[in-house]
Amino acid sequence: MRKTSQAFQRCVFVALLLAVALLDPQPEPVRAAGAGAPTDWLAPGQQQALERARQTVPLIEAIRREGPLRRREHLHDLGLTVKAVKTTYFYLNSPLISAVEDHYTGVRFNHGQHAAQAGDCSVCHHLRPEQDVAYSPHPETVRCSACHQQAFDERVPERPGLKAAYHQRCIGCHKQQRSGPQVCTDCHLKQVPDHAKLVKLPEHPDALQVTAECLRCHEAQAHDMLQTAHWLWRGPSPYTQDRSREVLHGKGTTALNNY
């Protein structure tokens, strides 16, 4: 008796679920295949950060010379500490860099976090322009690209360009601190060329045509793939019990290879 009532309950539950599924007038929108994150959504502050990254400002040539200690005291006296940080998030990228070399995407840089951890603005804002600049409310802490622009600029030969200024400062500190990003792709993703422009295929290609088109550029990768277990069906499986050394049975050895 109890068993039958349980079975009945289950039947009713399934029927209800089916009814709900069938009657639901607006099913969940299905994301189009191949699309990543929704394109119309941007993180807060991202729009401003991207716009700011696109801006360029005129090069400041005259710099006020100040020793590191004096500079630190000076900024402290002016009240330029973590509390004065207005913009917490920057997107580090610039047409100054991408016009010459564009191999990586920009870097999401948490200005507020870095200011809090360094506790000292003079680590990065190490010098200031001789004259105040109109676009910056704080001439003491102007943006990097006010002074660091093109590499090998004959007007200011001793100054690294913007790309080198970023890298020298970031890599120097992160090496010293032994924390945070350590290799290139920890900070920025590789700029993959737009394959829609590179791939040349007929209207309705067959599978072999597609493979041939991939191989046009990625021949070395294809060669590498032929050495792997994905192709050979044999090789060590280090994470499988009793198969850590070599697979003696299977498609690569004893069984019929049916692909």
């Binding site: 010459v100 191999h103 590499a151 090998f152 030969p157 360009g161 080198a164 290139c184």
Partner: peptide, 9 residues
């Protein structure tokens, strides 16, 4: 131009 740290000037 590619050198990230301007080790080459």
């Amino acid at each position: 131009t590619i050198c990230p740290t301007e080790a080459i000037t």
